[in-house]
Structure formats: structure tokens, C-alpha cells
Design a protein around this nucleic acid. Sequence first.
DNA 1: GCAGAAATAGAATAAATATTCCATCATGGA
DNA 2: TCCATGATGGAATATTTATTCTATTTCTGC
Lengths: 270, 270
Amino acid sequence: MTNPAAPDTVDEFRQRLAALGPLPKRLQQCADHLAGNLDRIAVSTVAELAAGAQVPPSALMRFCQIMGFHGFSDLQRLFRDAIGGGLPDYATRLRNLKTEGADQPGALVAEFIESGRQSLENLARTLDEAALSRAVELCRAAGTLHLIGLRRAFPVASYLAYVCEKLSIPAMLHEGVGGLSLSQALRPDDALLAISFAPYSSETLGLVEKASALGLPVVALTDSLTGPLAKGAQVVLTVEEVDFGAFRALSATLALALGFAVALAAARAT
Amino acid sequence: MTNPAAPDTVDEFRQRLAALGPLPKRLQQCADHLAGNLDRIAVSTVAELAAGAQVPPSALMRFCQIMGFHGFSDLQRLFRDAIGGGLPDYATRLRNLKTEGADQPGALVAEFIESGRQSLENLARTLDEAALSRAVELCRAAGTLHLIGLRRAFPVASYLAYVCEKLSIPAMLHEGVGGLSLSQALRPDDALLAISFAPYSSETLGLVEKASALGLPVVALTDSLTGPLAKGAQVVLTVEEVDFGAFRALSATLALALGFAVALAAARAT
DNA sequence: GCAGAAATAGAATAAATATTCCATCATGGA
DNA sequence: TCCATGATGGAATATTTATTCTATTTCTGC
């Protein structure tokens, strides 16, 4: 056979789809429609999908074979096996909450739930494991881990301080009580974890600069690889939160921060 | 026919399942297995589900009919239509992250992502809208909204303070800087939002008691309807976070708190 | 425009899956 | 103990669904 073996994960299938060369008209329609309806493949019949792509069923069959599958059933098995989470009753309940009155408190909570979930899924997709490992490595030997995060990043920083305490990681939270900057507390063998999102707070940027000048390892937890916080940092961890209204639920940022802290504790223990 | 009409949402199906009277053995097995595998109904065949429930296919068919459906296909349509979000590639990626080494930082983040997501789904399922509305109503007329949450609840309280500021809700965060209690700041027309989880911090309980004695409205955000925090509160909002290791991602708590704050701002604006 | 190759549609067939039916087995009340 | 009622399992059937095949059409290079 001239075709490469069939993909055996959904991810691989997606990539293969994207990397597909130019195709005859009908097969292209198949590719486009499948790519746009990945979540329905598991629960549709050949006839339904073919109708959606506006091709006859036989065209879809040919497409499956071109992709390396034996037939449609073969492809479908991939997607059926991948269905696990996302319990449908949760989706239903969420829809109910949302639609029963846009200004009801329940509807607002539903929106934040949804944006939190999307943020978490984004993080799962885009997490840069290499950067995370480097960040842990970098802070592993630090005497004290300095934490800074102000305004909306403050909850994250303060939770990290709590977690570090529990994990016996020497940490210091720069919270700016009384306007004190405490930047003198940075010692030569320390490290800094700075958390900030656009618009970046000047105090945070200032502390990063200072730590950088002293040659300390700096890890940034921020929303952009190119933002000002990324400049002074050795390692940048990015996380993209989905907003609802003017606010974000911080779910993904907290998950990443927690994972970092626990990994750091594990690294220090060995 | 003696059966009530078939459920036409997944939620309704769940409720009907739970409310089912005593059943003959095989039918009970069907009910149990379906209840425990809701997420596989959409992608399984009669034979597969029957095997899982350890009954012959015909027993499952009878069960479908007892539930008011014409047949299994009828029931399955319900679940197939309900599948939407939860793109499978997210699930795949998450699985990859988790399995590639339990002590890798990426795997830890994946665990926190997963527990965050479960917490959010729990919240969607169990949110008590009536209580939430009462909470908003209760705090609507308050002069100042007092916020307290210490230790691991502190990030939530501090984020609420930030959000209230942005929403022009007069709020005061009791953070205990310098060991001051500030309980004298409670004025007759104020309200208190207290956040605490087991083991409850005594400072929080103390402030609740004081506010209660003064006759102020008290809203509790906690993990149990029967815990000590629920005692002194007029309204109790419960949220159950899924732990990973000793820590929780706070996703659900934050989503609920944010929803409350925005709803409160909306109520005050009218 | 013509031969050859590739692509296509739709009907024919094969496979899988759901559904019904009935003979058998259990259960509870006279 | 026997009958009546209801439950059960499995084989037979009906239906849906996937897959293949082939005649026809559409491209491509010459």
C-alpha cells in the first residue's frame, strides 16, 4: 500500500488532516467537513457525515481509505474510544443555567464555569512542558523563592505562598503592604517567580528588573511570550485565560502555578 | 400505555433513573450500569452495554421501553444529540501529559487541570440557584460588604476584593495584617461574606459570630451545609472542590465567587 | 479533440446492529 | 402444590449502516 499507516490518536489524525496536500474536490470536501466537525464523528453515521460534506457516502469511504483506515468504522473507533470526560448531563445543566435568564445569578456563574473550563482545556493543549521543566530546574537550588503578583495576579501569588509553606519551600510573598518594596530581600542564591498579565503592574516589572540585574533566576508566569514580563525572565510560562465580561476565573493560572509548586517540592526533595 | 413519556433531556433521564422504584434484578442491573456509564451510551451498541451490565441484549431493550423509549436507538439519540463540547483532542493531550511520567511537572499540571475541570462540572451540577439569589438579595442593600477568607480561602477573598473594587461595590477585605481583627469596622447596615473550608479558621468563625450577633446578613461560602460556618449564616453557598494531593485548584470556588460578585453589582445597579 | 487515467455516483451487497417473539424459568398467592 | 403472573434468555427477524463494485463522467497531457 502507498498510504502511511492510519493515525492512532485523535491528535495525530488532526495533524494529518492539516498536513494534507491538495485533494480532488470531493475528498477535499470530506476533509474540510470532518475537520470542522471532529466532535460529531464519534456519533454520526457515514450517511450523515457524507450529507454534511455534500458528497455521496462512497466518497467518504474513499477518503477514509486514503487516510490509511480500513474503512469508516475504523476511523470512528478512534473517536469513540477517545470520548470520556465531558459528561453530557453537565453540558445540559450548564445550558439550562445559561438560558433561564441572562441576568440571573445562576447564568453568570455558568458563564464563569464555562470560561474556566475553556481556560483549562487551552492550558492542556498549549502547556510548554519543556519550559516548565526548565523553570523547576532553575528554582530547584534557590535559597528563597520570591513570589510577586499584584492586582488580579495577587490571588495566584498568595495561594502559591500558602502552598509553598505547606510544602516546606522557603518562599516570600511580596505583597507591598504599607508600600514597602522589600526588594532588598533578594539574596544572591534566591530565585523569583513573577506573575503578571496585561496591563502589567510596574512594581512587578521593577522587581523582575532588579532580580535580573542581580543575576537571579527569574521565572515569569504571564499571558504572552513577547510581553514586557518575558524580557527579564530566563523562563516564561504562558497561560491564556478566557475572560467573561471583564473578569477571568484564573482556573488555568492556578492549575499551572500549583503544578509548578508541587513539581518544585518534588525536585527539591531528591 | 402505562409509562410516562420518555425523558427528552439527559438531565431528565438522570433524574428518572434516580427516582426509579425497586426493579427486577436484570432491569436493576441495566439501570445501575447505565447510570455509571452515561458517557458511553452515545457511542456504544446494545450488545456492548448489555455485556457491561451482564445482561442479555433483550433485557436492555426491555429496560429502554420501561423508561418510555421506543427502543434503544431512541434513547441513544438523546445522548448523541447532547454531545458537543469536550473536544476529544483535549482529552488525548491530557492523557499524554499524564502518562509520560508521573513525576514530570507536566503530569502534575495535568492532574490539577483535571481536578479543576471536575470541580467546575460538580459546581454546574450542584449549584443551588435559589440560595445564590437569596445571597445576592441579602447583600444588595448593604453599605459595605465585608470579606473574610484566610489560609487557602484567602486567594478567593482577595480576588473578590479586587473584583468588587472594579465593580464599584464598597468592600472591605479582612486580611488580618499585623494581627488586627478590625471587627469594629462592622456597621449596622453592612453585610459579611465569609469563605472557609474544613478545617475552619477560628478568626473567620469569630467574625461570623460577631456579625451574627450584630444582626448583619451573613453569607457563607463553604464546603458543607452542616459545617460550623453554616451555623451563623443566613445563606450558605456550598462548593465541592476536588483535591489532588493535598491541594485544590479553587476553580469552582472562584467561579462561584465571581458570579456572585457580578450578580451583586447588577442587582445594586438597578 | 483524443487516449488514458483518475474521480465520481449510485446501485448492489455484505455486515452490523437493533428489535421482536416465544419457550422456559422463577415467584408469590390461594 | 398448583396456578397465574411476571421475568428471563436466546434464537429469529427486521432494520440500519457500512462497504464494494462498476458504469459513467471528468479531468490531463499530448
